[in-house]
Amino acid sequence: MTELLLEGKEITVTFGRGAEAFEAVRAANVAVSGGEAVGIVGESGSGKTTLARVLVGLQRPSAGEVRLEGERIFSAETEQSMPRSERWKTQMIFQDPYSSLNPRMRVWQAVAEAVQVWHNLPKAAAREEALRLLQNMGISDDQARQFPKSLSGGQRQRVSVARALAPGPKVLIADEPTSSIDQSAQAQLLNLLRRLQAERGLAIIFISHDLGLVRYLTSRVYVMQTGDIVETGETQIVMEQPQHPYTRLLIDSIPGRGNGAG
């Protein structure tokens, strides 16, 4: 039995104040063990990204706590942000390839920065490592020297993956990581994630609106709707016998089911 690596307990996130306040995430419990891949699915606006941002320490919860390797590292009560020593262990691939890269930094610099910050390498070594990570994601040295604006959507998304993997994290939260890449590049990324999972015991939280991907990659899944986790269980069982009406709707909306828009 592998032990729990990352845990979010009773996470609530409230945006706004007074009459305008609304809960984007409500008392959510999620957990992932070393070498495990879990999925989070749900419609847009259901709170998936907000929950992920709490887990990596980018968003303080209004209630609840985040635990890593059994230690509480971030909570509604703590004054500080997530400690630096813990932060590198959980990395995130961001959903939006258009806003997640600094437009004034060359592509290789964005990745080298992540390498350097976490591993304290000298600049030249960090650059080498960055170029290697980018190469692995199919970004040539030529493209690595560009600014993000001259990269296509899919190329930016692959840069975001390289940057997340740079510090050698223990947990990877992938927020719709394949939404902008073609199916073959998607297959490459999924193969890579599965290899890291098997070889390095990487824990993966895979957020996607593509149930086919979630079924393929994950063993457990959480279904979110308007801030609540409405269903959770083994992925295969949830897909075959969805209990919640919303889960059934999601499964029926997969394109190519012959009941499409055409």
Binding site: V41, E43, S44, S179, H209, I254, P255, A261
Partner: peptide, 18 residues
């Protein structure tokens, strides 16, 4: 890529709207 950033339920609505 008008539906890339949307989940499947919304994707389907947008495609049938188009």
């Amino acid at each position: 890529e008008p539906t890339t950033a949307l989940d499947v339920t919304i994707q389907r609505e947008i495609l049938s709207l188009i």
